[in-house]
Computed example of a mutant assay.
Amino acid sequence: MNVAKYFLLSVVVLLNLSSNAQTPRINFTLPGLYPEGLAYNPKNNLFYVSSETTGSIGTVDQLGIYRPFYQNATFKSSYGLKVDAKQNRLWACVSDATYSWFSDSTTYKKTGRLVAIDLGNGRKVADINLAKLYAGKHFLNDLTFDNAGNIYVTDSYSPVIYKVDAQGKASIFAQSDLFGGEDIGLNGIAYNPQGFLVVNNDSQGALYRVDIKDPKSIVKVNVDDLFPGADGMLFSNDSTLVLIQNKSVDKVHQLISPDGFKTAEVRMSTSSEDRFQQPSTGTTANGQLYVLNSKVNELSDPTKRPSKDFSIQLVEFKPAQ
């Protein structure tokens, strides 16, 4: 083989390796943490992660160094997280739904609290009991903000979406049998500035559009695909929704809609070579999309040893096949 042909073949091999390589990860270590929620604070360039097993909240820097941020003995498990940059607060969904190390009969499937922590001093500044608004089991899972400062929260064990207004008043925003599931019902939620929410149903794999001004107007998004194991979501822009899917699919999808998410189609997805590990929630940092590899599926398998390493992984989409 001559030098030119050898060089060309080498370039082709390198390109193939690069295209099939796993996307970069920020690896961090804390045995048994099993984080579920992920948020990013641009003011200090830190990620915040929750914990399904301990309820604690910690930070992860760009080098993968984990540091405790907030701990509370009454937190059994913490889930969805969102940074409110205007108020300099971190909001967290706190429940006792499945795998807490500290679960007890007074809290198991009964707790549903929305908690705010001051990002400056690390002190709790709000603690809102949403479980009292609806009789039944509770699992506060994810949250989103609208432009007026209202917060919307999903309950995976009760068929409701809660609302907390800018003054801290809590109410049931929307209720529907469409939100229920055999196990986990509603999971991810995202606000679109055009005036609606999109929520997903983990068990059904379906997406629903909920009008902000008329929350009884609940419409199933017409999309060819179903997404069992649908988890966190966020809008990239008014017409582009990012959806994270686990339950052995372990991919991130980009959905495009021409009509305000009455209909949608999957335009891009991540590659199987990225090897996501039970991805749960995502956030944008410095203009890039990152997803948390929660490994939470390990907690339902008694044969697995608890993981000590977790990661925040860069998302790179490829055209859907």
Rank of each mutant, 00 (worst) to 15 (best):
L81P: 09
P35E: 09
Y48T: 06
R123Q: 15
S103R: 13
G37Y: 06
Y6A: 15
S10H: 03
T106G: 07
I65L: 15
F75L: 07
K110Q: 14
V125E: 06
Y70N: 08
F47Q: 02
N16Q: 13
N121I: 11
V83F: 10
P24K: 04
N121H: 11
S105C: 00
V49Q: 08
S10R: 06
N20I: 07
A39Y: 05
L15V: 11
Q71A: 12
D104H: 11
S18H: 12
S51L: 05
T59C: 10
F102S: 11
V13E: 07
N45C: 00
A85P: 04
D127H: 09
S18P: 00
G55M: 04
G55H: 03
T111I: 04
V115S: 03
N16F: 14
T23F: 02
S18I: 12
L119C: 08
G55S: 07
F7D: 12
V11R: 07
G122V: 08
K5G: 03
D127T: 07
S78H: 04
S56C: 03
Y79E: 11
Y34W: 09
G37E: 10
K76R: 14
S51R: 07
T29C: 01
R25F: 00
L14H: 02
Y99G: 02
L9I: 12
C93E: 03
T98L: 11
I26S: 04
K5D: 15
F28K: 04
S51C: 08
T53F: 05
S103I: 01
V60K: 02
I26G: 06
T107K: 12
L46N: 12
G122S: 08
Y48E: 06
A97I: 01
S56N: 14
Y99T: 10
W91Q: 02
S77L: 01
I117F: 03
A21F: 10
Y66R: 10
I117D: 02
A4W: 06
D118M: 07
P24T: 05
F102G: 00
P68T: 03
K124D: 00
A97W: 00
F69S: 09
A73K: 13
L114T: 01
L114E: 10
I117C: 05
L33A: 03
Y70K: 08
K82C: 02
S19T: 13
F75E: 01
F7T: 14
T59F: 09
D61I: 11
D84A: 05
G120A: 13
G55L: 05
N16A: 14
D61K: 06
D127L: 07
V49M: 04
Q22A: 14
Y70I: 08
G112I: 07
L30W: 02
R89L: 15
A73V: 13
P31V: 04
A126H: 12
Q87R: 15
K124W: 00
K124Y: 00
L81E: 03
A39D: 02
K76W: 00
F28W: 10
G122P: 08
A39I: 09
K109C: 00
E36W: 07
Q71N: 13
A39S: 14
R123Y: 11
K109S: 04
P31S: 13
Q22I: 01
R89K: 15
G32Y: 04
A92T: 12
G112W: 06
S103W: 01
S105E: 12
Y40C: 09
Y34C: 06
V83Y: 03
V12H: 01
T23Q: 14
G32E: 04
F47H: 03
R25Y: 01
T23R: 13
V94M: 12
